[in-house]
Amino acid sequence: MLSLNQEVHGPKTSEVYGFVGSISIVVATVIFLIWGYVPDKFLESIGIYYYPSKYWAMAMPMYSMVTLLVALVFYIGLNFMSTSKPTSLNTLFDDYSREDVNFLPLMKNGEDRPIDPISDIDITRINDLMFDSHLAK
């Protein structure tokens, strides 16, 4: 019963929210632009005397943009700080390193073989494969 009610009203609720949201944004934008651009004299002539200082019409957007830029710079700086040093052992081992486990060591011929489970290959072996000319052949 509850789910049935939700199904009936759900789409309509979303549509109402969307409609009210878009109208509100348009109205808010118009009010903001009037506040920011119409001179004080005109506003006072039609009886509007009390509104926030026009300074904030410029300041708030600028503050927001600068905050966003600074947040980006901070985030990228944070990432550089979290980079391991070249001498750090975390570039070789970590909490999640897994040795290669050879389960099912006895495999019959023709029997399906599962895809190997995920595991790390030791860096010494990689170096041998990469740079030892004998093994490379």
Binding site: S82, T83, S84, N90, T91, L92, D94, D95, Y96, S97, D100, D116, P117, I118, S119, D120, I121, I123, I126
Partner: peptide, 14 residues
């Protein structure tokens, strides 16, 4: 990176 797991790793099958 996941925690301390950072940098380059070689895993199963290369």
């Amino acid at each position: 990176a996941y925690g301390n797991r950072s940098g380059v790793r070689y895993m199963t099958g290369g």
